[in-house]
Computed example of a mutant assay.
Amino acid sequence: MRASERAISDINRELADLARRNGDAENELRVLGSAAAQLEAAIDEQQIAFGKLLAQRYRQGHAPLLRLLLSGEDPNRVARQLHYYGYIARAQAGLLEELRSNLERQQDLESKAAQARADLAKIERSRVTHKQQLEKEHLTRRQALALISKEVDAQRREIGDLQRDEARLAELLERIEKIIASRPKAPPPRRDQERGQRPPRHEIDAFGQFKGKLNLPVQGELAHRFGSPRPGGGTVWKGLFIQADSGQGVQAIAPGRVVFADWLRGFGNLMIVDHGENYMSLYGNNETLYKQVGEAVARGERLAAVGNSGGNTSSGLYFEMRHRGKPFDPMGWLNSK
């Protein structure tokens, strides 16, 4: 099940990227189509103008200049006629050059449009392949769930399993805290800051300022609260379980940096975000993880998609907040409005 749930997360991420590329290609094709339509209209106008010039030259005969010079008419009138014929000739040459240039541009646009259509077809083939792979992984996962459903139900009644899951998470958080603590400390304030100047933004965005202002990371039904008994008794919930539809977006509660994004037994596809000052937020049971370790995230940015990984029978998000590795009730930090 671990491999299939990881694969589902990876395929969904690739499908999201394909959707973005498909949108870019469709937009490019629309732009090319609009440019081609404008160019075709310009070519039509040039062809009509060029046809009129040719018709006028034909009516004048094959040697209008010679007849004019030998006509014996008034020299001033002859000079005006010669100037007019020169203008016609230059206009004809100009139109011909513009028509040739526009026809070349039309051929180039048709070539680019053909390439854009080929790219769209390639993206669609890739999307179909990924969809088939996703359905296959979902089937594999459903089969795995069917095989272990009785075992999972029995395990959830046993206090020992829950305690082991929590112990694994505690060990993971301890390792993460040691890694964070080993990082170089921030440099001391500069002289201009010591003189009272405003420090950089990231130095004043302390996590404590968000108390009472946070939003839940996903909209849904609050099925289990912090401190309520877990099934089977003997242990309590260390966070919140929010029932939500599979695929619904999970958002970061505050700015931070991803320090863990992987599968963990009991928590499925789990993401942990470090907010500084020894505060962390945890998002478990996801179907898809969109961020990777080391990536900075903004408040409200999409981190993952709701799922039921980790053996859950219903879809939803398991959400914890911790300070110095200890869980605390997130409800006291949420916006009451």
Rank of each mutant, 00 (worst) to 15 (best):
D17L: 10
Q47T: 07
L29F: 07
D24R: 07
E104F: 08
P64H: 04
G86N: 08
I148H: 07
K122V: 03
R105V: 14
R141T: 06
H130A: 11
K136Q: 11
L134Q: 11
R67Y: 05
P64D: 08
P75G: 05
A41K: 02
R127D: 00
K112E: 15
L70C: 08
A79E: 14
L53K: 10
A37S: 12
Q92K: 06
L54D: 11
V128S: 05
S126Q: 14
N76R: 15
E158I: 01
A121D: 15
S101Q: 13
L53E: 05
Y84H: 09
Q56G: 10
S71I: 04
Q81P: 02
L65K: 13
A79G: 04
E45V: 01
A118W: 02
Q92M: 09
E151G: 13
G86T: 01
E104S: 12
Q56D: 11
G86V: 00
G86D: 07
H62I: 07
H83N: 15
L29I: 05
D119T: 14
V31P: 00
A154G: 11
L109H: 06
V152T: 15
E40G: 00
Q47S: 10
A114I: 01
F50R: 05
R117N: 12
A93D: 14
Q46D: 15
H138T: 07
L66G: 04
A42M: 05
Q46E: 09
L99M: 10
I148Q: 08
E110H: 03
Q132R: 15
A42C: 02
L99Q: 06
L82R: 06
E73A: 13
H138K: 12
K136P: 03
H83Y: 09
A121N: 13
K131M: 11
L147T: 04
I123R: 11
K136D: 10
A121E: 15
R157A: 15
A118E: 15
P64R: 00
R157N: 12
A93K: 03
A154N: 15
A114D: 11
Q56K: 03
R80M: 09
A118L: 05
L68D: 01
L29Y: 08
I88A: 10
L95M: 13
A37V: 03
A91H: 15
A36F: 05
R57M: 12
K136E: 08
A144R: 06
E158N: 12
R21T: 09
P75D: 08
V152P: 02
L68M: 08
N22Y: 02
N76S: 10
A154T: 04
D74L: 02
R117E: 12
